[in-house]
Amino acid sequence: MDLTGLVAFNVVTGIATLFLITIGLGVIYGMMRIINLAHGEFMMLGAYTAVTAVDHGVNIWVALLVLPPLVVGLIGLAVERTVIRFLYGRMMDTMLATWGISLGLIGLVTTLFGNVVKAVPTPVGSFEIGRYGASLFNLVLIGTALVAIVALLGLLRFTKFGLVLRATMQNARMAAALGVSPGTIYMATFALGSALAGLAGGVLAPISGVSPDMGAAYIARAFITVLGGGPAIVTGTGLASGLFGFIDELVSFQTSPVIGDVALLCAAVLLIRVLPQGITGRFLRRSL
């Protein structure tokens, strides 16, 4: 019983982690059809923001949850203004450009911080599930993911910005004819997606090694999850994270992380075969 509780807790943590690392990519890809190959590096920048802030004595919660999305959001804004906005509608060119940006960011961070593994202390301790110990920080991960889901849904559903944003994504020229500036909306969306990537990096910093090439460990999963989720960004990413995270954690626990990865990939291949448009391409098509 205790063990079931522990494994269930791990599964929920795995799902939350997968959602966090994916949603930033999902926002940018789902809304703008831009494949941001620098997504992993945006996460890495978020993690380095957290490390630097903690080193300078900033409150740990501010350093993990507030500063990374702000800083990386601003960096995303700068990247959009200087590079991405010239490449809208040219998918291959944006891939090439963002790949270049990712290599550049790895090089820059290596030069600034050195090719070493940095760390942030975990701000909270552990708790007991029966006779097993589990990390309290995982609850922070789950909480952050939940807040991110609710906030995004609220933003898209209930605010004027969300309405304009959805309109622009559905038909940019019609939106422009009605007085919306698509350029501004794209800029804001890219910054939002970058900020979410930064948040993921910041909140994962205490439990992973922070190094210049850490993004590579996350990027493949994020892409698979976005593709599995389909066109409805928040719901799709949430459902795909739930499915893949569940399979990965459970199989990893029963066998080994290698088999867990294999199971995740098999599930993704099957899913794309059956539902080429992703989960929300067939079900819940009217969701967000």
């Binding site: 791990n10 990893s252 290698v258």
Partner: peptide, 20 residues
Amino acid sequence: TDFFPLDVTNFSSAISRIQQ
């Protein structure tokens, strides 16, 4: 005995297995 590829970052399942 568990082996981990060099790109594994999440060890929660491994830690559960060890506890078990």
